[in-house]
Design a protein around this nucleic acid. Structure first.
Lengths: 186, 186
DNA sequence: AGTGAATGTGACATTTGTGACACTCTTTTT
DNA sequence: AAAAAGAGTGTCACAAATGTCACATTCACT
């Protein structure tokens, strides 16, 4: 149930804020007003259907809202598959990347909403991945779920660097699906 | 997601606004309409490809939108920097990625026309990178220039997998700039 | 509580879309 | 060769949509 402000919509549509407010007032764009002074909010789903209805291109970072997917980054295929199974049972689409390069490409391709990340992949520094992603404004909404066999200190460091949560491996399926759902439903 | 109005395009093309609207309506120029009375907007990228398609010179201030750049993938910063120096002297913009993940993200972020790739980065298999990129239709026009200290057999294998050229390290600057220019100018 | 950024509002300035028609150039017809 | 037809573009006036600006208010932080 994520919402957008009039200003955000103005940015997305490359249009003046004044115009967005007029759209909402005239009913062209469905929205609602906050109690305060009547600041506007628009449901992402309403905004997306508004865009579709007018053939306006949909920004990349909203793509992940309408068809949210999970990117599973793990070099051990069996582990990745088992994560994927849990995700699928929860009804989520997911993709597997077994290397850093593939992960980068796929992340931008699918605009995933959530990325599960193995910290200790050979030759790939999970920390620097977290750090790098967090420097990119494009992925500010990406949720990062660290899944690692390392100790708690390491997990905490990952959180400090910007991961949204961390699970120690091996993980309990119940715990995993719970965490996934938390992030996928925002 | 920067967009242009019909008026701006009219100015760029030194043409009447009426004409621009007709282009859009007839489908010659891709665009979309705002909800209000149907004011037109055109994505900069669509406009640029429209210009290219009709051999119309591209205005300077749009040049930056498409200016092709080079992505330098090498974990050794000094080597990467030296490649970058050569590229800069040739007048090419370039970016450096020191890890696979960063390379993947940057490749999609910048409009890279050429990627230089070190085959033997710790924990990152250059071959699988080539293979993966070549499977992606999105990057079918990306030129891959392998720069590696490995033997000729390895370089040949890279070519077989889809690299466009290979240089052995250490490389001669003259040779490098020559190769870069060959690919950057198509 | 306080402070900077974001939002809403009104009045006003600009830009844009539309329709009808004129102009130019090329192609087709006579 | 002259005339006619056609396609593409420019011009004009007007209405509608959008942008701009200043300012008050509220929001989202510390």
């Amino acid at each position: 149930m994520k919402t957008l402000t009039s200003g955000e919509i103005a940015t997305y549509c490359d249009v003046n804020l004044r115009t967005v407010i007029r759209w909402i007032e005239s009913g062209k764009l469905k929205g609602f007003k906050l109690p305060g002074r009547g600041n506007n909010r628009v449901l992402v789903s309403d905004f997306v259907s508004f865009l579709e209805h007018h053939n306006i291109p949909i920004p990349d970072d909203l793509q992940s809202e309408i068809s949210p997917s999970i990117l599973i980054v793990d070099d051990e295929m069996p582990v990745a598959k088992s994560i994927q199974r849990v995700a699928r049972r929860g009804g989520f689409e997911s993709h597997i990347a077994t290397g850093g390069f593939q992960a980068g490409i796929m992340l931008s391709q699918y605009n995933s909403k959530l990325m599960t990340l193995d910290l200790s992949m050979p030759g790939m520094d999970g920390y620097s991945v977290i750090q790098f992603v967090r420097e990119q404004p494009k992925y500010k909404n990406l949720k990062i779920l660290v899944i690692s066999a390392l100790d708690d200190i390491s997990l905490e460091r990952a959180i400090d660097l910007g991961a949204n949560a961390a699970l120690s491996k091996p993980f309990a399926n119940g715990e995993l699906i719970e965490t996934i759902e938390k992030f996928m439903f925002e």
